[in-house]
Design a protein around this nucleic acid. Structure first.
Lengths: 341, 341
DNA sequence: CTGAAAGCGCTTACAG
DNA sequence: CTGAAAGCGCTTACAG
């Protein structure tokens, strides 16, 4: 390993002046600049960032803790933060918490010990206490951290409620009145919000809420299929449309509908949530509510970076908008057709 | 920031003994162990890994450089390496190279400067020279590095050729003789291998190779759609089955087939490659060749970790097997039906 | 403009 | 068993 000392020796100057030319912060005699640069070149010297960071307390690294990169929601988000980090010459630690408070906290501490300048936690699970402690050790932004007690932190959220409202409104607009809701049980916070929005929107339209049209299910496509079958197979009222808590589940639901011998969207309309990559690709392409996943990542990272560079101002709470993406799984209600308004 | 010095002071011992109890490598008087532990607890002391790494030359961090986490192939691979890293108490830097040799090299250097103990590069693009230099600076394993000149490196590959052969054989078994090939142009290495295997397998069965049945296309689903339309719309021979270079493309191809008013698999069979998450979920579910993505990641990481712990033995070249996953996009050839052998 | 020196927070012989 | 000291590779006042 070639160190600054070697460069200094070869260039016939002190390590101080080598450091000076490398950081460009000091005025150095041009002749020496050249000598140093030549020596750096000749030796192929590259500064040791560990040493620099130890000295300056700046690591140019940030951490990202997400539930699971394998969940189609997260690659885009991760890409958003990586792009922002890259632009700013930062480097990214990636950690999968598997929605476990313990693993999340373990990683958070590991990153602190590695002296990241800051970290982003998506859907934080650890305690408020821990989050507070974390904030003492590095900059922190929470993404999808929709708990009300999180007010004192920087937050980048998505407007789940509004998104769910537009989904249900879309279905209503297409003449559906018997609208079911199927949501994953695990995603507590966001699933809850979507369910609440579903109820509220129906209420707005004077449509009674019927619990028989609501199913909670496991958080993978099989869960969606099971729920759809249970729904269509029960004695209860039959929906003409289903609003599903997320796209993966929606694909399971569609599968379940097919298994019951029904068609989408001719017999039953389906609207998802998230707009993951395959939603555009599936046949029929999934009508869904798009979350700006990349933007959540990018903006979280940019906010974090800004905090790192100059810890200014007060806490920011940003909530990003969703948009409904109309594709091919929603059609007019076969029961009573009305015009879209 | 509370440091070892603070702990030492509070516990009334030297930093040397604090260090001793923390690493458990030294025999320390039990009474002192307790005092130190108590002080650690009281102060909430956590060792600074930067300092430790600087001293010991061990960072317990590794890097992963992949083309793009947003490509559905990579999340699983990344998860494989992350899991292995986590097991070994390592932490992971994630970098997206976008298949750019420059960005890849930039990241490789950045990671070296941050003193990762090793790194995994997937589908390496930088020069042999650079790779060699890298190997001087840290442990290195290449995944999907199928160039012949890479022999001197540790390699974890997938048997693309065999996979492609089984795909074509599957199609042949189902009676298809007019088999087209559509492959992305960008994935040079692997796409080439798949094309070669396609040709070789046809040759084995005395089926003449017809370039009119081959299309190269852009590397996204739209490219697949365009290629399929061009194929089905041209004056040339019409295929009864299409072997597609990867699953994303295959979904585009299926879309293109539908756009031409044909059905899958009744009119045209389609076999993909990769087995990404949505292949199982799509309707009809995609018949494809599964690559052990998670295993590529896990085994790459495990090999790397082993190199880091004890640099033993000689170079390892491992090639993992594929398997064909029969689902619903391949059926008997409508032209001439024969029995599967 | 430059060099010598202290110090970032650790670990590790070494002497006792 | 313990402490003092050197050193990992940098940066940063400070004196000249």
């Amino acid at each position: 390993m070639v160190s600054m000392k070697d460069v200094a020796r070869l260039a016939n100057v002190s390590v101080g002046t080598v450091s000076g030319v490398l950081n460009g912060k000091k005025a150095i005699k041009p002749a020496n600049v050249e000598k140093v640069l030549a020596a750096v070149e000749e030796l192929g010297y590259r500064p040791n960032m560990l040493a620099r960071s130890l000295r300056t307390n700046v690591s140019n690294s940030i951490g990202l803790i997400i539930p699971d990169i394998t969940n189609p929601y997260y690659p885009e988000l991760a890409r958003g933060v990586e792009d922002a980090a890259h632009m700013a010459n930062f480097t990214l630690f990636l950690c999968n918490s598997d929605r476990s408070a313990e693993k999340e906290w373990y990683y958070a501490q590991a990153l602190v010990q590695k002296k990241v300048d800051g970290m982003i936690i998506v859907k934080p699970r650890c305690t408020l206490e821990q989050l507070k402690r974390l904030k003492q050790s590095c900059k922190l932004v929470l993404a999808d951290g929709t708990d009300s007690e999180l007010e004192e932190f920087d937050l980048i959220n998505v407007d789940n409620k509004a998104g769910a409202v537009s989904a249900v409104n879309l279905l209503l607009t297409y003449g559906h009145r018997d609208i079911a809701f199927i949501g994953g049980i695990v995603e507590s916070q966001s699933a809850k919000h979507r369910l609440e929005a579903y109820q509220a929107t129906l209420a707005c339209h004077n449509i009674p809420y019927r619990p028989e049209l609501v199913r909670e299910c496991m958080y993978d496509w099989r869960g969606g299929r099971v729920a759809a079958q249970s729904l269509l197979t029960s004695n209860g009222p039959k929906p003409t449309a289903i609003f599903v808590g997320n796209d993966i589940l929606a694909f399971g639901v569609i599968r379940g509908i097919y298994d019951c011998g029904l068609r989408v969207p001719e017999d039953i309309s389906v609207c998802g949530f998230d707009d993951i990559a395959m939603s555009e690709l599936s046949i029929p392409a999934l009508t869904t509510v798009r979350q700006p996943k990349y933007e959540v990542g990018r903006q979280s990272a940019e906010l974090l970076l800004q905090r790192i560079q100059t810890d200014s101002s007060e806490t920011v709470h940003k909530v990003l908008d969703t948009s409904v993406i109309f594709r091919n799984t929603v059609s007019r209600s076969p029961i009573r057709k009305i015009y879209a308004d």
